[in-house]
Simulated scan of single mutants.
Amino acid sequence: MIVRAVVEGRAVDADARFALEARYGHFTAMQVRDRRTRGLAHHLDRLAAANLEVFGAALDRAAVLGSIRAVLGDDLRDAGVRVYVVEHDGRPRVVATAAPPTEVSARPQRVTAVAYQRYLPHIKKAAGFAQAHIRRAAGPLGFDEALLTTGDGLISEGAITNVGCLSGGRLLWPDAPMLHGTAMRLLEDLDVPQERRPLRVADLPGFDLVFLCNSHGVVAVGEVDGVPLRQDAETLARLLAFYDALPWDPLD
């Protein structure tokens, strides 16, 4: 539920916010606690790279930070914040929205594999009907998230997450087109050998731990399409301890 929205620093009503948010453009999503967020530089870098590709223009980082501060106002210290850069009246506009904060589930997630590949997956696009539909369809079936795959089960990412696997002390990421998410970027600093390799749904039961990550946090995957997965307690504890110890960057 959106509690506040601003367009280029100016407060707007819900209808105006919706009209802008649904347009052509890109965005990033972050969790804010005590007016701080993890990986602020990664969020800004994502927006800057996408802006060059989508609009052929440099990003005004000061405008983005100003919009985040404006949507938080003087009263919001904890929130889920999204920053969109969307086309309106022939030019890109910065739109920021604030919603109640979201905490990652501590419960191992149930996931289902869905054959779907996003267009320009490296860009977090403002309009995402397909992913929203996939997650809505998975929910009533008892699944928390969907893994996006090719027809023969090659994993790229989750519908709104990145997917990682830990095996024998190595951190494995899918070698496939995907969004290089901010949480994934932060976990790439974990001091273990890491590599990208083709990962298939059928491979997952053989790993010590399969996990999902996004701005909400990191959570283990308990099963995929009813098949239970290993959840090595020591491996999970080390991963969560690393993520929980990451610094929060000030927004003021």
Score class of each variant (00 low, 15 high):
Ala62His: 14
Glu234Thr: 13
Gly66His: 10
Gly80Pro: 00
Ala113Met: 08
Asp74Tyr: 06
Ile155Met: 00
Cys213Lys: 03
Gly90Pro: 10
Asn162Thr: 15
Leu47Met: 10
Ala115Ser: 15
Gly169Thr: 11
Arg93Pro: 04
Ala159Ser: 15
Arg197Asp: 01
Gly73Val: 08
Val6His: 01
Leu209Val: 11
Arg110Gly: 03
Phe18Gln: 11
Gln131His: 10
Val224His: 01
His26Cys: 06
Gly222Ala: 09
Pro108Asn: 06
Gly153Ala: 02
Phe242Ser: 02
Gly151Tyr: 04
Met30Gln: 14
Tyr24Gly: 03
Pro140Asn: 07
Arg136Glu: 14
Tyr116Val: 11
Ala137Gly: 00
Phe129Glu: 13
Gly25Cys: 06
Ala58Gln: 13
Met178Pro: 00
Leu179Lys: 05
Arg230Glu: 10
Leu76Arg: 14
Ala99Met: 13
Ala57Gly: 04
Asp13Asn: 14
Arg238Gly: 13
Leu47Trp: 05
Thr28Ala: 07
Ser215Lys: 05
Ala127Gln: 11
Leu20Gln: 09
Tyr24Gln: 10
Arg135His: 12
Pro250Gly: 10
Val3Cys: 11
Gln117Pro: 02
Pro228Arg: 12
Asn51Phe: 00
Ser67Thr: 12
Ala70Ile: 11
Arg136Ala: 15
Asp249Cys: 05
Gly142Asn: 05
Ala41Thr: 09
Arg110Glu: 07
Thr150Met: 01
Asp45Tyr: 02
Glu21Lys: 14
Leu212Ser: 06
Pro250Tyr: 09
Glu53Gly: 05
Arg170Cys: 11
Ala49Cys: 06
Gly164Phe: 03
Thr161Ile: 04
Ala176Phe: 08
Thr112Met: 12
Thr149Ser: 02
Asp13Glu: 14
Asp232Asn: 13
Gly9Asn: 10
Val54Tyr: 08
Val219Asp: 01
Phe129Pro: 15
Arg4Gln: 14
Leu154Cys: 02
Glu234Lys: 10
Met178Ile: 02
His43Met: 09
Ala50Arg: 07
Val64Asn: 04
Gly139Lys: 14
Leu186Trp: 05
Val104His: 03
Arg110Asp: 03
Thr102His: 11
Asp203Asn: 07
Ala130Leu: 13
Arg17Ile: 00
Gly56Gln: 09
Leu47Val: 12
Asn162Val: 14
His88Pro: 03
Pro174Tyr: 03
Tyr84Gly: 07
Pro205Val: 06
Leu147Asp: 00
Leu204Thr: 00
Ala50Met: 09
Val94Thr: 14
Ala241Val: 04
Gln231Glu: 12
His122Tyr: 13
Ala138Ser: 05
Gln31Cys: 07
Val221Cys: 02
Ala99Phe: 02
Ala11Met: 10
Leu65Phe: 08
Asp60His: 01
